[in-house]
Amino acid sequence: MIIINKILNVDDYYFDVFMSVSEALTGFPVNELQSTGLAETYYTHILKKLEAATFEEFLTVSMNIFEKSSSPEQLKAAIASEIMDNPGMNEMAVQVITLWYLGTWEGAYINDLSYQEGLVWNVMHAHPPGAKQPGFKSWAIQPVNSNL
């Protein structure tokens, strides 16, 4: 029970590790992840859906990777070998990536904001239909990466 109380405190180092591993897994800087307004929501949502020990293990492995990696190349290699090639850690990493990109956990949206702020919209240079409209005369602007 002590671990659960400690990990639910978003001011602790586990939250910082969660944000750092989220940055490494998504390719988006921490400040952009924070700007979604969902960082603490996602962190606490994961804690409600998983056993605290499972999430803590994922974050501890992640923290160890950050501590021993002295370059971006070492970090990528360590994430590939210790997280992505490890079935238990890989499943958690995929869930975290999906959470940030789609705003879903096990196929369900976390909340309305998670749909609107999904990173997928930034990657596609699009807006979430029915939630954030592109603006007046946006149709007159040539799409990004368009061959037209």
Rank of each mutant, 00 (worst) to 15 (best):
I2K: 13
D85W: 04
W121P: 02
P29A: 10
V61H: 05
G107S: 14
I141A: 10
S81R: 13
V17C: 13
N122T: 03
G88V: 09
K49V: 03
A52F: 00
M19K: 03
E23W: 04
I3E: 13
F15V: 02
L47H: 08
A93N: 07
I65S: 11
G135H: 04
E56N: 12
P72Q: 12
W121D: 04
V30C: 06
A52E: 02
A52T: 01
P87S: 04
F18H: 09
S114E: 08
S35Y: 10
L102S: 14
K68R: 13
L119E: 10
N64P: 01
F66A: 06
L113W: 00
E67A: 14
E73S: 03
I79W: 10
S35Q: 11
V123W: 00
Y101N: 13
H45L: 09
A108I: 10
Q142V: 09
V30Y: 01
G130Y: 01
E51K: 08
G37N: 05
S138L: 05
K6N: 13
I110Y: 07
T60S: 11
W100P: 12
S146Q: 04
H127Y: 07
I65N: 09
W139Q: 14
I79G: 08
V120L: 03
Q34E: 15
I97L: 08
I4Q: 11
L47Y: 00
Y13R: 12
E32M: 13
E32P: 00
N122P: 02
G135T: 04
M1C: 01
A53P: 01
S69N: 11
I79D: 12
G107N: 14
L50T: 12
W121R: 03
F28Y: 15
Y42Q: 03
N5Y: 02
P29L: 06
Q133C: 05
L8S: 06
S70G: 15
M84Y: 10
T98Q: 13
M84S: 09
L148N: 12
D112H: 09
V144N: 07
K132W: 06
V96Y: 01
T41K: 08
L59C: 05
L38M: 15
G103M: 05
G37H: 06
K48T: 06
P128H: 04
L8M: 06
T41Y: 02
L119M: 15
I110E: 03
P87M: 02
V96K: 04
S20K: 14
N5C: 00
F18N: 08
Q142L: 08
E56C: 07
E73R: 02
V61N: 01
W105R: 02
I97V: 15
A93H: 09
I141P: 00
A131K: 12
S70K: 14
F58H: 04
Y109H: 13
